[in-house]
Write a protein that binds this DNA or RNA. Structure first.
Lengths: 134, 134
DNA sequence: CGGAATCCCCGTGGATACTG
DNA sequence: CAGTATCCACGGGGATTCCG
């Protein structure tokens, strides 16, 4: 990512931010609260590599309970970010995949997760330093 | 953002994602859970436009309580993303601003918020359509 | 002004067990 | 296999009050 481009993105975001994103009734806020939960982000990220079945997601996203997994998947399907395909066989076989909208969101989202992965050491060190200072 | 570039970002994220971001003990996970709360994201975004005082943030980020504001600010300061400057005057004057690390995070974060702002209509429509179908 | 402290409610989220 | 249902604990989050 070039510096120029990042500046552009930031500028665009800024003009948008100063507009209405902070308003209590901003339409984006409601959707963000539903989709930007800690599990939903990881689930979306997991689906970037391709369609997954329920149990595959359960083992891939470590630490998530079946309840939260199904709950978040329902929310994501409702938001139009994830597609649910049911194969009418026995035993039943359900496959989840990203919709076009979901794939579009995956870009910025993965960039963010990537940032946390890359800067985790710096964050931990800063946190440890702060705790020691206090 | 060019398509090529987005593909690159996605590829980088993918290789990283398949590595360890999904592990339960991934160091990034803990920090993400602290920083990626619904208020912390808005607070960080609000600070992109420059330093803000406590009350300024309280009015800017609509709907946040003083408790959650101070709580999230403490967490952000601890994570090394926000700097807290105290002016020893009466009445006291505290100013919050982004650190270098925080400003770096603001890039991907604003991109994400920007996405939600831009695609809010599509999300709402998809949601309404899904609710009508069921 | 900028919080810290207290009380309290309710939603999130986990563990477990059950169903189609 | 892919969920749903039930119970339960914890912490998020609001309102209020008090402090430096």
């Amino acid at each position: 990512m070039t510096v120029t481009h990042q500046a552009e993105t930031l500028e665009t975001a800024r003009t948008l931010l100063t507009r209405d994103t902070f308003a209590r009734d901003c339409p984006g806020r409601a959707v963000m609260d539903q989709v930007m939960t800690r599990w939903a982000t990881l689930i979306l990220a997991a689906l970037v590599t391709g369609p997954h079945r329920f149990s595959a997601l359960a083992t891939r996203v470590e630490g998530v309970s079946q309840k939260m997994l199904s709950h978040n998947l329902k929310a994501l399907v409702r938001a139009g970010l994830v597609h649910r395909a049911v194969e009418p066989t026995v035993p039943p076989q359900v496959t989840y995949s990203l919709t076009a909208l979901g794939a579009d969101l995956a870009g910025p989202l993965c960039a963010l997760i990537h940032w946390f992965g890359a800067n985790a050491p710096a964050l931990q060190e800063a946190q440890a330093r702060h705790d020691a200072t206090r």
